[in-house]
Design a protein around this nucleic acid. Sequence first.
RNA 1: GUGGCUGUAGCUCAGUCGGUUAGAGCACCGGAUUGUGAUUCCGGGGGUCGUGGGUUCAAGUCCCAUCAGCCACCCCA
Length: 423
Amino acid sequence: MSSLQPVRGTHDLLPDAMRCHRHVVETAREIAERYGYLLMATPVLEFTEVFKRTIGEATDIVNKEMYSFALGEDESITLRPENTAGVARAFLSNGLAQDLPLKYFYAGPMFRHERPQKGRQRQFHQIGIELFGVAQPAGDVEVIAAGARILEELGLSGAITLDLNTLGDQKSRQAYRGALVDYFQAHRDRLSEDSLMRLERNPLRILDSKDKGDRIVVADAPSFDSYLTAEAQDFFAAVKQGLESLGIAYVLNPRLVRGLDYYCHTAFEFTTDALGAQGTIMGGGRYDYLVQTMGGPATPGVGWAAGIERLAMMLATEPAALRPFALVPIGSAAEARATLLAEHLRRGGFAVDLGFSGNLRKRMKRADKIGAKAALILGEDELVQEVIVLRDLDSGVQRTVGLASLPTELKAFASFASDDPAA
RNA sequence: GUGGCUGUAGCUCAGUCGGUUAGAGCACCGGAUUGUGAUUCCGGGGGUCGUGGGUUCAAGUCCCAUCAGCCACCCCA
């Protein structure tokens, strides 16, 4: 029995759910392309090193959430937990450093071995964009704007806020990190167990702790502002100014810290309170050191990723399904003719459903069930007269049209209103 | 990975103090209606009560384990 269950945290995407996913992906891809971000894909499998080196040994993702498999003696491959590292690897593998700037859009499955709950699965799907080779804040602004535009097109703007923060450049971050460690070390007796771990691994994370005791300590912690270099401050100011000039509303959130090691400068998250604890719908930032970390030339980058399942859950209305024409033959002669007719119409670009068996009543029931917009009824009488009955399944109005002109009729078909004079 | 809640038909759920053939609505299939779906009426199929142990004369019901989903933490999209 357990073998008939899907693997924990994985789900089938049956057509209804798949339609929502496709709507999200297609909408995002279309908008992304308007901004010049082109669809590409990297393998689902990468050498484990690709993630270990870039995402960071100290992060939970690398620590305990990767699906890794030994390969031969001393090689290990991993199902990608996110796609930025893979895209960066592809950038280097394909020797694209000459072609900057590069703008990519991707969509596909990611894998993290986490405890599943709503909005969090072990195999989940992300869309994302990456911009390589642009060091200016205008890059951050464009990337965020493209994301905001996609969310808007999906009808989610009202339910979402954009949180914004800066992690500064390396110099700022190191100085601040040092100051934070000193401060928290001095108050370590008041920190939660979780935060004591964070103090070792990623002290910035303590700022984001939900523990009440931690929050009291955090309240008096040194603020990043005083450690930001002038360059980092200017950069952040330019990003904010760029967003404002585009009319993109944001909320400054000094506690917003990205978990992955490769981020610097701008960090942002689009969040909602409609999804419980999994409120982050789209998150990203700047990663100027990533490509370098992988052994490539210093190449700045910015990007974000968004969870397709989370976006799909927030869609207010299900995207409409394709409505075919249902071809309904009566009798074996008509069935033979219908097979040819269906092929002909499909070749002409129409979605045509032709059942495999059943009398008129059965076939009409099926036509209704699959949501056909109209039925095309072909019986003995129609056959001899070279005509067919075209019945609007919404209004119930039908009329007889010549077989020769059928493609034209179907092309023009919207619906027959019940007071259609032609009926 | 930690803590908690929940698993009965495809779906949503009922099932008394443990008591003998486990129910309803929706969905599905067939018929009323052999050239007309969506309404209506009649009939039908479908369950190893998540799984495995245990207690008991008797377990859907009680106990243990396990699996899965959900909620919070952790983390993140």
